[in-house]
């Protein structure tokens, strides 16, 4: 860690015991791993308003981290920083332990970081395959490809494969996205991000517009992504959903990380307490802060 910021989490090197106690370490070995994504001391101001005041986030490989906080806590700003939509004024981003800059969304994609936006960012007049390959089209081989001709057959076959393996049910992959249900659209947006993410999948309010069954389906998708070794950062107001699917919960309040809790033992009481500031955690960035500790404190 080159910048000794107060929000500095565990050193990336030796991975002390404290790191292991942070989360339930879903797949055992990942407890000792370098964080796949680590934000520290992130500052972002919009004019007079400080959206992020030294925010931090730690994500280990293959885990589901929920980023929760009240409105205005800085969740969306954090996501935008990671996905390259906005640039932080200060702070450090590390991917697999290496400091990186993410100047634009393409840079985030190159790092294997994909985002499912709350508005899904689908082109409704295009079909699912075209949406899946948007910006990454497969071209025809040879001269035709150089002239800009798409290999629609290959794109459609791969799209069928990708959506099929994720269990996204699309009857007619040649139909426009606009003709599909909200759940199917969500599935397409998630499927697209999952298909390209090989490090981190960011999901901004993935269940906001969904019914019960569809929400469960998104949860299953998240579990499938995790089992493929890709980490998931989940932003949600839906606390029951968070408790069901997150391995760890990090709480943002007023632009700072105020708590890190294990999903297995976190209660809605201490999550809500941290979100509202009713409960204070002495040093949320201290990796030794275990869920047990926080419960004692409360």
């Amino acid at each position: 860690m080159s910048t000794p910021s107060p929000a500095d989490p565990a050193p990336t090197g030796p991975a002390p015991a404290g790191t292991a106690s942070v989360g339930p370490a879903p797949h055992g070995a990942t407890a000792l791993a370098t964080p796949v994504l680590e934000l520290s001391g992130i500052v972002k101001s919009y004019g007079q308003v400080q959206a992020l005041r030294g925010a931090a986030l730690t994500v280990y490989p293959g885990e589901v981290v929920a980023l929760v906080g009240d409105n205005g806590a800085g969740k969306s700003t954090t996501i935008k920083v990671i996905s390259g939509v906005i640039q932080p004024d200060a702070g450090e981003i590390r991917v697999d332990g290496r400091p990186v800059t993410i100047p634009d969304p393409i840079a985030a994609r190159r790092l294997g970081i994909e985002t499912v936006y709350q508005d899904l960012a689908l082109a409704p007049d295009l079909d699912p395959a075209e949406n899946l390959f948007l910006g990454r089209e497969i071209m025809r081989p040879g001269l035709l490809g150089k002239l800009g001709f798409l290999d629609r057959k290959a794109m459609r076959a791969k799209a069928d494969e990708a959506f099929g393996s994720l269990g996204v049910g699309i009857q007619d992959t040649a139909a426009q996205v606009v003709t599909m249900s909200g759940g199917q659209r969500q599935g397409i947006a998630v499927g697209r991000a999952v298909n390209w993410a090989d490090r981190v999948l960011l999901m901004d309010e993935p269940t906001a517009a969904l019914g019960v069954v569809q929400t469960e389906r998104v949860g299953q998708l998240i579990q499938r992504v995790r089992s493929s070794g890709v980490a998931v950062v989940l932003i949600s107001h839906n606390l029951p959903f968070v408790f069901e699917y997150a391995d760890r919960i990090e709480v943002l309040r007023l632009g700072q990380r105020v708590a890190r809790l294990s999903g297995a033992t976190a209660t809605s009481e201490n999550v809500l307490g941290a979100m509202t500031g009713a409960l204070t955690f002495e040093d949320a960035s201290d990796p030794a802060l275990t869920p047990a500790d926080s419960e004692e404190q409360s």
Binding site: A123, L134, G135, L150
Partner: peptide
Amino acid sequence: LTRFGTYTRTIGSNVEAARRAG
């Protein structure tokens, strides 16, 4: 049939999606 055409339709369909897709 070309990428040019797909981008043309994408921009008209959802310019923000096009932008975020690079």
